[in-house]
Amino acid sequence: MLRSRAKTMRSAPTEAEHRLWQILRAKRFAGYKFRRQAPVDFYIADFICLSQRLIIELDGSQHLDNATDMERDAYLRAQGFRIIRIWNNDLFTNEEGVGELILSALRAAPSPQPLSREGRGANGAFNG
């Protein structure tokens, strides 16, 4: 069911998701491979670079101080992922700055947490 929802989300991206995907897709961004709307255990990550254990979430105003997002982030961090959240407005008004933020996060060392199941988290973490 989660995979089906992720597939639906990939086929109808928000304007911000579409814009960021044009930058990240096909290893265009410094050679790093990203997936979009990827199931990770019980959640769907907007963008994920598995090799660097990095999840990028694009957020609109509905995510401001969202308790569900905080719970989700805590779970994913416990699985060894690093998460950066980018406001949609920041992407539209400062694309270069967003790119620098993402590149900096990619070049930072991934989590030293031991991984299981082909580099995934404790519960399989990546399901796509």
Rank of each mutant, 00 (worst) to 15 (best):
I102A: 05
G128P: 06
S11P: 06
G31P: 00
Q113M: 05
D65A: 11
R53G: 00
Y43V: 08
A105L: 04
K7Q: 08
S4T: 14
A38G: 04
I86Y: 12
E57M: 05
L76F: 03
I55A: 05
R25Q: 03
F29D: 08
L2M: 15
G121L: 01
Q22G: 06
S116D: 06
N94E: 09
I23M: 14
L50H: 03
E71S: 07
L50M: 10
R19V: 11
V98A: 05
I55M: 05
H63Y: 05
P110K: 06
E57Y: 11
I86W: 14
D69P: 00
L106W: 00
F29G: 03
R25I: 00
L20Y: 15
W21Q: 00
L50D: 02
L106D: 01
F92Q: 11
A78E: 05
T93V: 15
R120L: 05
A109L: 14
R117P: 01
H18G: 13
D65V: 04
P112M: 10
S111T: 03
R5L: 07
Q37E: 11
A122E: 04
S116M: 06
S11W: 04
P114E: 04
S11K: 13
S51G: 04
L58S: 12
L50P: 02
P39L: 09
D90N: 15
S61N: 11
S104F: 08
R10V: 03
L115I: 04
L64A: 12
G60C: 08
I48F: 12
Q62D: 14
F126E: 10
R85V: 13
S51D: 10
S51E: 11
E57V: 05
F29T: 06
G97L: 01
R19K: 09
L101Q: 14
D90V: 15
I102K: 12
A38D: 07
L106V: 09
N94T: 05
C49A: 01
G119V: 01
E96V: 10
P39K: 00
E95P: 03
H18I: 10
L106A: 02
A67V: 10
D69H: 00
Q37C: 10
D73P: 01
I83E: 11
R53D: 02
N66E: 13
H63L: 01
C49K: 00
A12C: 15
R107C: 06
K7F: 03
R36Y: 15
F81H: 01
L2R: 08
Q62N: 13
A125T: 11
R10Q: 12
E95Y: 06
G99W: 00
G60E: 15
N94A: 15
A78V: 02
R19D: 09
L50N: 09
R5A: 14
I55C: 01
R77I: 05
A30S: 06
I83W: 09
E71N: 06
W87M: 05
D73S: 15
Q22Y: 15
Q113I: 02
F92D: 11
Y32I: 01
A125M: 12
E15S: 12
A26P: 07
F29L: 08
D46A: 14
L115M: 11
A78C: 07
G124T: 00
A45V: 09
H18S: 15
P13A: 11
R28I: 13
S11R: 12
Y75T: 01
Q37A: 14
R107M: 07
A74F: 04
S61C: 10
I56Y: 10
E15R: 14
P112W: 00
L76N: 04
E96A: 13
P39D: 02
K7A: 11
R117E: 03
R85C: 13
G60H: 08
G80L: 02
S51I: 03
